[in-house]
Simulated scan of single mutants.
Amino acid sequence: MSLIKLGIPKGSLEEATINLFGQAGWQIKPRSRHYYPEVDDPELSCALVRAQEMAPYVANGTLDLGLTGLDWILETQAEVVEICALTYSKSSNQPSRWVLVVPQDSPVRTVKDLEGKKVATELVGFTRRHLAEQGVAATVEFSWGATEAKVVEGLVDAAVEITETGSTIRAHGLRIVADLLYTETRLIANPAAMDDPAKRTKIEQIATMLQAALAARHKVVLKLNVAAGDLDAVVALLPSLHAPTVSHLYDGRWLAVETVVDAQAVRDLIPRLRAAGAEGILEFELRKMV
């Protein structure tokens, strides 16, 4: 019997989550028409669960651990332990946001202007509470999908919808009035599981390795050779967690330098390093960084 029952979000985050676990060291293999993927760890069992339902299943002990968005934790108000934030998705590494959208020609300019209006959203509970906090009385109805289309067709006055860039919203001829919530994936645990020493140790192991895998996605290792006389100029260009590692080559006039840098900086950094005298520059991807 497995020690930890893990919930994998089914749907848009499924593949990205399985890939993240793979980088962290766990191979999870979905099975056709099956809600229980295989995993290469006898202490784990997996279940595919919709992100919207994850927090309640973790809260009631059906699952010990799961991944879901902050939005669905707030929506369900489930009593779970938030272990850590994990910012990743199928398309970007930026948090998504729930926004209030209206037609371009709508008189609605602020949340306060929703008084007496009709709003469609999947995030019904959160939206109702947010409007109540603003002192706004509006009708909030659940949308099963195609929420933006309901605004376009005039079925509702506004919608609260999730987006990353806002490009799809603009493509539909809609206008973003306000950001209501920034959300990202959370690793959540059942409170009773966290009180169990064995389960807590396993959960903390999983959290550490997932965070290490995500941190590594933004960094690369650079290795290079440099003549002793050019060392100071080259090292001055190199950002590092602490300081670059420098070691002597067999030819005492040359040194080997190794450091970790931001992946996005490499395209500008390598030409500058070469101009400063660096040779044999190599770039390596990281799998994990703790």
Rank of each mutant, 00 (worst) to 15 (best):
R253F: 00
A159Y: 03
Q205G: 01
A212M: 10
K199F: 05
K199D: 07
L249D: 13
L231I: 03
P271D: 04
L210R: 01
R170P: 04
R253V: 09
G229H: 13
L210M: 10
G154S: 08
H242A: 15
E204S: 07
R253S: 13
L181P: 05
N225S: 15
V266Q: 02
A138H: 00
M209H: 06
A146E: 15
A207H: 05
V160C: 09
D262P: 13
A158R: 04
R272S: 13
R272A: 15
L224D: 07
D262Y: 02
T183L: 03
A265C: 02
K219T: 01
A228H: 04
Q211N: 15
Q205Y: 01
V221M: 14
L155N: 14
E148T: 15
L238S: 06
A216P: 08
T259F: 06
N190G: 11
G252Y: 06
A192S: 15
T259H: 07
A189Y: 03
V160H: 05
S167C: 11
N225G: 13
V156R: 12
A227D: 15
L180R: 04
R175Q: 10
A243L: 14
T183A: 09
G145S: 08
R170N: 08
K202S: 05
A171V: 01
Q264F: 09
V226H: 01
A265Q: 10
P239I: 06
D230V: 06
A227M: 12
L273S: 05
A215N: 13
S143T: 09
G166S: 07
A137V: 11
A178G: 02
A256W: 06
R170L: 13
A198R: 15
L224H: 02
R267C: 10
L174R: 00
L255D: 03
P244G: 07
I162S: 13
A212R: 07
D179H: 09
V177I: 12
A178H: 02
R175H: 06
G229T: 15
R170T: 12
V140N: 01
Q211V: 06
S240W: 04
P239A: 14
A198F: 02
Q134H: 14
A146D: 15
N190A: 08
Q205N: 04
Y182V: 10
W254K: 09
A227I: 01
A212S: 12
N190R: 12
R267D: 14
A178T: 06
L237Y: 00
T183W: 00
Y250N: 11
K150D: 04
L273H: 02
T168R: 12
A256G: 10
I162V: 14
P239G: 11
G145C: 12
A228R: 11
I206V: 10
Y182M: 11
P191S: 04
A158K: 04
D268P: 00
L180D: 00
G145H: 04
G166Q: 09
D179M: 13
L187E: 00
R267K: 14
D157E: 12
A189L: 02
A236C: 11
E133V: 14
I162Q: 14
E148V: 11
P271N: 08
Q211K: 15
